[in-house]
């Protein structure tokens, strides 16, 4: 039974059972918190609208690009460089391939 679950990594072993237990524990705590919430809010009124500093927005939605905005902004210098490499010009791709070809030849033959 033990062997069907555990992975042996050379150093030691790892068993997902502990993590399943931890996940279930976290989930039950979350469920408990959710059950403690109030339920009597009125649908279709302002009570459903998220509170954004008292401002009313047309479409209060956080798109994927808003999330981790600072994270993406901090990586922007690297990202712009990488994006110029992925230029879309097929000659550049062939050029990169020639580079890899040269590197592999140098490595294997010399």
């Amino acid at each position: 039974m033990e062997e069907t679950i555990k992975i042996f990594t050379g150093h030691g072993h790892w068993s997902p059972l502990i993590w399943v237990a931890a996940a279930l524990g976290t989930f039950s705590v979350a469920l408990l918190l959710w059950l403690l919430g109030r339920r009597e809010h009125k649908r279709g009124t302002d009570q459903e609208i998220p509170f954004l500093s008292g401002e009313r927005m047309e479409e209060p939605r956080v798109s994927a690009l808003h999330l981790y905005w600072g994270f993406a902004e901090a990586l922007k210098p690297i990202l712009t460089r990488l994006k110029t490499w992925h230029s879309g010009v097929v000659n550049d791709y062939a050029g990169w391939f020639l580079l890899i070809l040269a590197v592999v030849f140098l490595l294997v033959i010399v």
Binding site: K83, H86, S87, G88, V89, V90, N91
Partner: peptide, 8 residues
């Protein structure tokens, strides 16, 4: 090829 770069 320089103008066909919609995918970049």
């Amino acid at each position: 090829a320089r103008k066909i770069r919609e995918l970049r």
